[in-house]
Simulated assay, not measured.
Amino acid sequence: DMRRGTDIKAIYSIYQIYQILKKEKFDMVQYTTPNAALYSSIASYFIKVPIRLYCQWGIRYVGFENKKRVLFKLFEKITCKYSTHIRAASKKNLEFAISEKLYSNTKGKLIGEGGTIGVDLSLFNIAKKNTYNKDIRKKFKITNEFVFGFIGRLSIDKGAIELLEAFKEISKQIITAKLFIIGNLEINTCINKDLIEWAKNNKNIIFIEQIKREELVKYYSIFDCFVHPTYREGFGMVLQEAGAMGCPIITTDIPGAGEVMINGESCLLIKSKDTEELKRGMKEIIFNHNKRINLSREAFKRTKEKFCRKKMLKNQLADYIDLLNKE
């Protein structure tokens, strides 16, 4: 049992993992996500698992400040210390981690172009985009309205405030614009309650809770623009999925998110935590038809070339074999 955030039950979680590892005697343990990685690195270190592989698909403390940042940086250092090998999600995340002295350049490595397992192009099949688009528009009674899409936790560090504030201004000028928000509102969120209430009562904002990937692919097809104004990111699976379905993309110029696509070619990059710049980007996508078409085409092309699942799994397998052979 593992929960988000800090939790006194973490000690019991570590103990449970320790018992499993002690019984099974694994040659390698791989872990990711902040809490799971922290607990597993500690447990596998004391069991002396030969290969303790930390997939650092994001660095949690980046979005924090003051004492909270110090505490969560300490947790990250512990995870890195107790791991024998680390695989960063992107080049800039790797460089940042080394500059922060989380680990040495001999312990950390980037596989391929970055990312994790890539996109299953048989599921995210752009040939079905028009059919899916018609089905979803019919379901929600949407005709020719321009549709923005957001997928993920609606939380501060995913850029929820900037997203809602930017759309609030845009919807005053383009009253038919729609915004799909797919994902859960984070519990105990610090987002302004008035802003949340405005969004929930706005008929042009459609909230959908988490859905299966088989259904999610259909929603990417309706997005005229995929918006991802995150503060921190490992690499951004949703950006790869959006690219696979030929969505014009707006995301932030930060390690991870800003490396999936190329600014001005296959996406628009904006400053993190900047509502005005996000609003300008969203307007540019709406009013510049040629730009929108070009971004869509290049996002698909880059995803197919760089982030196809078969290619990325092949790279990952080669890394596993190399690690095991060294032991």
Rank of each mutant, 00 (worst) to 15 (best):
I206M: 03
G5Q: 04
L94N: 10
A43C: 07
Y82W: 07
M312T: 03
I14Q: 04
K193Y: 07
A244P: 01
T230C: 02
H228L: 11
E145A: 11
I321V: 15
M312L: 12
I42S: 08
E24M: 06
K107A: 04
A177M: 05
L53I: 02
T6R: 08
M245K: 01
N133Q: 13
V70A: 11
D224P: 01
L195M: 08
P50D: 10
M312E: 02
V70E: 10
A127C: 09
D194A: 09
F307C: 01
L71G: 05
I111V: 09
E165R: 13
D120S: 01
K314I: 01
L163T: 15
K23I: 02
L123D: 00
Y18T: 03
L269A: 07
E214K: 00
I222C: 10
T32V: 07
N204Q: 10
C55G: 04
L323D: 06
I78P: 09
I321S: 11
K158S: 03
A318G: 07
N66H: 11
K23R: 12
I59L: 15
H289N: 15
N184W: 00
I51C: 07
K141D: 12
N204R: 10
F96K: 09
M2N: 08
D253W: 01
K73W: 07
D194G: 13
I11A: 14
A43Q: 06
L21A: 09
E162Q: 10
S221F: 00
N201H: 13
T189V: 00
L163W: 12
P50Y: 11
D194H: 13
N202E: 10
I262E: 14
L164K: 01
G108R: 11
A88D: 01
K68L: 13
F140Y: 12
E65M: 05
K271S: 12
G63R: 12
K273S: 06
K128E: 14
E215M: 03
A242Q: 04
T84R: 07
V70W: 13
M2D: 09
E162W: 11
M261F: 06
N201Y: 08
C225I: 05
F226C: 12
D135C: 02
A166L: 00
V227N: 03
F75G: 05
T6Y: 10
N325H: 04
N188M: 05
K9C: 09
G152V: 00
N294C: 09
L239R: 03
F235W: 07
M28N: 00
Y12P: 03
E113F: 15
Y39H: 15
R3P: 02
T84E: 12
K139V: 02
S221M: 04
N130H: 08
R52M: 07
R232F: 08
I59H: 12
F223N: 11
V147A: 05
T106N: 13
L313D: 04
L121Y: 02
R52T: 06
N290G: 13
T251H: 04
E305K: 10
K22V: 03
